[in-house]
Write a protein that binds this DNA or RNA. Structure first.
Length: 105
DNA sequence: CAAGTGACAATAA
DNA sequence: TTTATTGCCACTT
């Protein structure tokens, strides 16, 4: 079942490009691909759900908030994961994008 | 093939 | 400030 379209692979590659201690947003990824639809990026990540293949926990909303409902063990688990990566949280579920938002070169 | 749904983002009120 | 609506485009049914 090679339903894995190159588009999805593209998203995975971009997310994997994000270094530890940094985060990115769906909008940034979408723009980096030349599109405006951040939803597709979200779908691509949801289709994977494998943090070992793609660190989806580093991808957050444009507001810096974590994705809703993607939780793979609990919302607390996701936040804890980012903290271990070195991400600084401004609020309970909000990261400091102004300081740690990775910009695709 | 057509309609509905959605791990979002931007704008309006 | 928060909540609601619209737009975007792939994926599912």
């Amino acid at each position: 079942m090679d339903t894995t379209l190159p588009f999805f692979q593209r998203v995975y590659t971009l997310v994997k490009r994000v270094p530890v201690g940094y985060v990115t947003t769906y909008g940034e990824i979408a723009k980096a691909m030349g599109t405006k639809d951040a939803r597709r990026v979200g779908h691509a990540l949801h289709a994977n759900t494998d943090a070992t293949t793609v660190p989806c926990h580093r991808v957050v909303f444009s507001d810096g908030r974590l994705a809703s409902g993607y939780v793979f063990g609990g919302p607390d688990e996701q936040k804890n994961r980012l903290e271990l990566e070195g991400i600084t949280f401004i609020s309970s579920n909000k990261v400091d994008l102004s300081a740690q938002l990775y910009h695709f070169v």
